[in-house]
Amino acid sequence: MKNLKIILFIFSIFLANKIQAQNEEDKAQNDENVIYEDVIDRSTLKYNNATQCQIRYYYYPNIEAYYDILKEIYYIKEEGEWTVVEEIPINFRGYSVYNNANVPVDDYEDDSITEMFPIHKKRFGYITKEKVRKKLIGSE
């Protein structure tokens, strides 16, 4: 009888660990499938008459990231994969005041902005301290 109790005890510990592992796996999978709803009203976005697009995104060339105005989230590239975050991690790619330089994306307004990355990387390029200073004092 004592052996049976020991076996049942070990089995219950094993079962509890298995259930906990499954719960953690389910939680991680749910975190990946988060659907971000529009937070901002689309009608408040600026509009570019030349491209016929609303300005929904800002591109940060120095850290190769996007900000979605509608959903108030960032798309950043970590280890070669695009990740959605609510704020740029501290010291992400040496993030600083100069890396905060951004440009409005006036040629795309759909949901898959990361597909445009090769085009935007080539079009906008790295923003130097000099470019930021010229932009701030308006001498450009």
Rank of each mutant, 00 (worst) to 15 (best):
P104K: 07
A50C: 05
P118D: 08
I76K: 02
E86D: 14
K77F: 03
D111F: 06
K46T: 12
T114F: 09
R123A: 14
E78S: 14
S112N: 15
I113G: 00
D68N: 13
Y47A: 08
K122P: 00
P118L: 06
Y47C: 07
V97M: 14
I119Q: 09
H120S: 07
I127P: 01
R56S: 02
A50R: 13
A101M: 11
K77M: 14
E78W: 06
R93V: 02
A101Q: 04
I55T: 13
K131Q: 15
K71S: 04
E72W: 00
Y60D: 05
N49E: 15
D111A: 12
P61Y: 08
V84C: 08
M116T: 10
K77H: 07
Y66T: 02
R56M: 00
I88S: 02
E87T: 12
G125F: 07
V103S: 09
Y74A: 05
Y66N: 06
L45A: 07
A101G: 12
I127L: 10
W82P: 03
E64N: 15
K121H: 11
Y66K: 10
I69C: 02
Y60N: 04
D68F: 04
A50V: 14
R123Y: 04
T114M: 12
E87W: 05
N62S: 11
I69A: 04
A101W: 02
E115V: 04
D106M: 09
L70K: 01
Y57H: 02
N48I: 01
F117H: 14
V84S: 09
H120A: 07
W82S: 08
P104I: 03
E115C: 02
Y58A: 04
L70Q: 03
F92N: 05
Y108I: 01
T44D: 08
Y95W: 09
Y47V: 04
Y60W: 09
E115T: 08
L70W: 02
I90L: 12
D111P: 01
Y75M: 10
V105F: 05
I88L: 03
I63N: 10
D110T: 09
P89F: 10
K71W: 03
N62L: 06
Y108C: 01
P118F: 08
N102W: 06
V85R: 12
K121I: 00
A50D: 15
I69P: 00
M116D: 00
V103F: 11
N91K: 12
P104S: 13
C53R: 11
L45M: 13
T44Q: 08
I127V: 15
E81K: 15
Y58S: 12
I73N: 09
K77D: 01
R123H: 06
V85Q: 10
T83M: 14
A50P: 00
W82N: 10
G125C: 07
V85S: 11
N62Q: 10
I63V: 15
I127W: 02
C53F: 11
T128Q: 03
N91C: 05
G80R: 09
D106F: 10
I55S: 04
V84K: 13
N91Y: 09
